[in-house]
Simulated scan of single mutants.
Amino acid sequence: MRFFRAGLAVALLAAVCGCAVTGSGERPKAAETTDATEPSAKGAKEPIDARELYLESLKQQALQPSINLVHEYYRQEKFYPEGSRDVVVSGFDYRTKNVRLERSQVIVADGKTSTAWGTWCLGRSEDWFYSSGVRRPWEKRSTTCPSLTDQTWLNDGLGVGGLTAQQADAFVGYLGDLKGFINAGGMSSVTRNGKPYVRLEIKVKPVKLAGGGRPVGADLYQDAFKYTELDSLTHPYGYLASGGSALDIVRYIDPETRLPVYSETLETGGGVWKMHRVEYEFGRPVTKSTLPAAEPPIARLTWQPESKSGSQ
């Protein structure tokens, strides 16, 4: 199995051999969707394209028992990529339910960056920070942290973790069976800090389901989760988009593990524009943090935004 996975990693990179393999700080050139094949242990052919690799990465993500994330979320295009935004540091262990959730509303005005408010989960209590000074710097607001709304930040807003192989197949299989929903874009290779990655471009398009009605977009991820037969309130699971939205996803994959390391998800449709940037880390325990004495620090992603010159 280890030999096969190494061979698959090579094949993934070979699949994009017509694209630039660049160093850190250089933007990879996007390619047309490319097919490649890698013989399996039984001599069968395994097709590799952007869509299939995206679904495979969702499955591998779903099988992970814990996850640590850093998020940036932009609600208006004029602020992207370095303006006002939500910044979230989160971690979740699906076995123990240990949680880390630190969310801040960052404001950039007149060249100055500050935190308007922040929430901090310590155990199951939630502390709030306000920069206005109207209230004390930190105060307890809840003993049920994270809130139902904030559970969305415990994963990347589309994927999930902590599933069995059967549950992961059900979740990803439903999404893969939806004709025209998940569509392949470009696939290219890139090297960052000496390590190769595969860069995927995926377009999620609203589709009409049997019976008619309005096309359904991101909401279908929630429908897919239902096939795991888990309770989304206790597992937990939530998607971060409007139900009918289209999504443009750029996702960087480790070719050896087929897990995501960085992604950008642009939500559009009906006048909506929202950008969600995420860095992933798997295999590390969920670490606890201490409540800052005053204003919370502003977390930074190490990957540069796609729209910024010099991005990966």
Rank of each mutant, 00 (worst) to 15 (best):
M1S: 14
M1K: 14
F4H: 14
L8Y: 05
V10Y: 08
A11V: 11
A14P: 00
A15M: 08
C17V: 11
G18D: 13
K29V: 15
D35E: 14
E38S: 08
P39S: 15
S40M: 12
G43R: 05
P47K: 06
L58Q: 02
A62N: 10
P65H: 04
S66V: 09
N68R: 14
E72S: 05
Y73A: 09
F79A: 14
Y80S: 04
P81Q: 09
E82N: 05
R85H: 08
R95P: 00
T96P: 00
K97I: 01
N98H: 12
R100M: 12
S104E: 03
V108F: 03
T113D: 05
A116P: 04
W117M: 15
G118Y: 01
R124H: 13
R124F: 09
W128T: 15
S131V: 09
G133R: 09
R136V: 09
P137M: 12
P137V: 06
S142H: 10
S142F: 07
P146C: 09
T149D: 14
L154V: 01
G157F: 01
L158Q: 05
G159H: 03
G161F: 06
A168I: 05
F171Y: 15
Y174N: 07
G176N: 07
K179T: 14
G180A: 10
G180P: 01
I182N: 02
A184H: 06
A184R: 06
G186P: 01
S189C: 03
T191W: 00
N193L: 13
N193E: 14
Y197N: 04
Y197W: 04
L200S: 00
G211K: 11
V216T: 12
D223Q: 11
D223V: 07
L233K: 11
L233P: 01
Y237D: 10
G238Y: 01
G244W: 02
Y252C: 02
I253H: 00
T257Y: 01
V261Q: 11
Y262I: 14
S263F: 00
E264F: 00
F282G: 08
F282Q: 10
S289L: 13
P296S: 07
P297Y: 10
W303A: 10
